[in-house]
Structure formats: C-alpha cells, structure tokens
C-alpha cells in the first residue's frame, strides 16, 4: 500500500461559505497543507474573498489580507518587503487570486511583481470565469463556453476566443518556477508547492478548479471533472523550472475531450463540429507542449 503524502495538518477550519463541491476551496486546503502555518495570504475580490466567511468569522487559520481586485501582485510585494525588513524571511507570502483577478484586471500588477522577482507565491485558482459576480466571461474562459456575458442566444454568442494562457505568460517572465496543477491530483499539487517552497524568488502556480455553480455540473462531479481535464489533455499538468519544461502527467491514451465537456452544462450547446474543433485545438496544444518539453530539456 502506498503511503499518503498529504499532510494531516488543517489550516482550513469548518464553516466556509463556498458552494457545495467548490474546487477552489479544495485548492486552498491543499495549498495551506503544503505550505504550513508560516504563511500569509493576500486575497483580492473573487469567490475566495467570500469563502472564508462573513466578519468576524474566518475559516482559515493563517493571517489574511483582503485586497482590491487588481492589486494582488503589488500586495504580495509589499508584504514580502515588509517581512524582510522585520527579519521574517521564513514566512511564505501567497497571493491567492481567481482567473479574472489574474488573467485580466490584475495582470499588470502580477507581471510587475514577477519581473521584480520578489520571493512570493502567486496562485491562480482557475475556475474559468468571473464567478463571484455571477459567471461572466474572463480571459481564461475556454473557447465555446457559456457564461452570462457569452449567453449563446439566437446568435450563438458563446465565447469565440481561446483561453488566455497565463502560465505561458509567466514563463515569458523568466521566473524560476511556473506550474499547473489541479485538485484531482493532490499529491502532485502538494509536491509542486513543496518544490516551489525551496526556491527563493517568484513562483506561479495555476490550479484548475472546477466550479459546479458556474460550469453547470453536479457538485459530486468536481474531482471527476478535474481528473478528466488532465486525462483529455484539456488542462495539462506541467512544471517549468528555470525555463525547463517537465510534463507531470502524460495520459497513455488520452480520452476524447467530449467526455470532459459533456458533464458540464456550460458546453451543452456545442455542435459535433465545435467539439471536433476543440479536440483539434487540444491536440495541437498538447503537441506544442511536448515539443517545448523536448526542446527545453535538450542541452
């Protein structure tokens, strides 16, 4: 029998206010398990600004600074520099922001914080839309998805643009650590955070986090959808350490993306051709990723 590698310590307390089956909540729980008590969080406007609970309740056992929507990058920079002034170099500083706060409104502050090379973690929990405000499209919403601002309708006005690849934008910043992860693979997620913890400098981790409310799936399917995202190559898991790619999981026989899509109401309207188009894009992206892995590993 394999030994469970997930730490037993809990930094999430009972009483959070997330929806049933919320992937972002599971993501936070694992992140804190991996990083431990000496961690300070900065959380901008997003579902996670609400999930810890209403004042004076707080379902998190670590210090937490709520911040404006677009400032996470600047906020973690300020915390880090102040901690260093105080001689507390051993405290982890973690920005924990949604995809909207990361890919869109907060991209400027994030880019600058990474470029300045502060010793921080930036975690993007990716639920692929603005959920807190009621499921609007973000730059991270995938092609073809329904949201309330891409509602389909008679003109089939769903999202017609591909998902913005924030992890690759981070790679372009030449930071020491970039990774993708998801909640269905907690050992992988925790191992990545622990590896990142050993690195002094900016670390970016994108955690694919299914959202039953926004994706229109049954709350008991959260982990299954997270796993299918990897097994269909819809959301590949990989690391880029000092520019070297390493794909974490390479499905032997990738499942058709249809299996991932069909569990979610947000893709219900898609035609056969559109599903085929998505499959084609996934295959191309996967090939490109493997190529990057090969090229970057070559000496």
């Amino acid at each position: 029998m394999r030994k469970l590698t997930i730490p037993e310590e809990e930094y999430m307390l009972p009483g959070h206010t997330a929806c049933l089956g919320c992937g972002a909540t599971i993501a936070m729980r694992y992140v804190l398990k991996a990083l431990g008590k000496k961690t300070i969080l900065s959380i901008p406007a997003c579902c996670w600004a609400v999930i810890p609970g209403v004042y004076p309740h707080r379902a998190l056992d670590v210090p937490l600074l709520y911040t404006a929507f677009e400032v996470t990058g600047a906020s973690i920079s300020g915390i880090r520099e102040a901690l260093d002034v105080l001689g507390k170099e051993d405290v982890n500083v973690v920005g924990f922001a949604g995809d909207g706060g990361t890919a869109d409104i907060g991209l400027q502050a994030l880019s600058a914080a990474m470029e300045r090379r502060h010793n921080v973690f930036y975690i993007m929990y990716d639920n692929e839309a603005y959920m807190n405000t009621g499921i609007q499209r973000s730059g991270s919403t995938p092609w073809g998805a329904w949201t309330t601002t891409t509602p389909g309708g008679k003109k089939r006005m769903f999202k017609h643009e591909p998902k913005k690849n924030v992890a690759e934008i981070m790679v372009a910043h030449n930071i020491p650590y970039v990774a993708t992860a998801t909640i269905a693979y907690p050992e992988d997620l925790i191992a990545k955070l622990r590896r990142a913890k050993e690195i002094k400098g900016p670390k970016f981790i994108q955690i694919f986090s299914p959202c039953p409310t926004g994706w229109r799936h049954s709350p008991d399917k959260t982990v299954e959808i997270s796993r299918l995202a990897v097994q269909t190559n819809f959301f590949p898991l990989y690391e880029v350490i000092n520019g070297k790619y390493k794909v974490s999981i390479k499905p032997k026989n990738p499942k058709p993306v249809k299996e991932f899509l069909k569990l979610q109401g947000r893709f219900r309207h898609l035609t056969e051709e559109e599903v085929e188009y998505i499959q084609h894009e996934i295959d191309e992206n996967w090939k490109a990723l493997l190529k990057k892995e090969r090229c970057s590993q070559e000496e």
Binding site: S42, L65, G78, E81, L86
Partner: peptide
C-alpha cells in the same frame, strides 16, 4: 497597494 500591504505587515 504595496504601501497598504507593507504597512499592514507592520512597517
């Protein structure tokens, strides 16, 4: 935003 975060951290 950075001043806010730093000041809230105690400097």
């Amino acid at each position: 935003a950075a001043c806010i975060a730093a000041e809230n951290t105690g400097v």
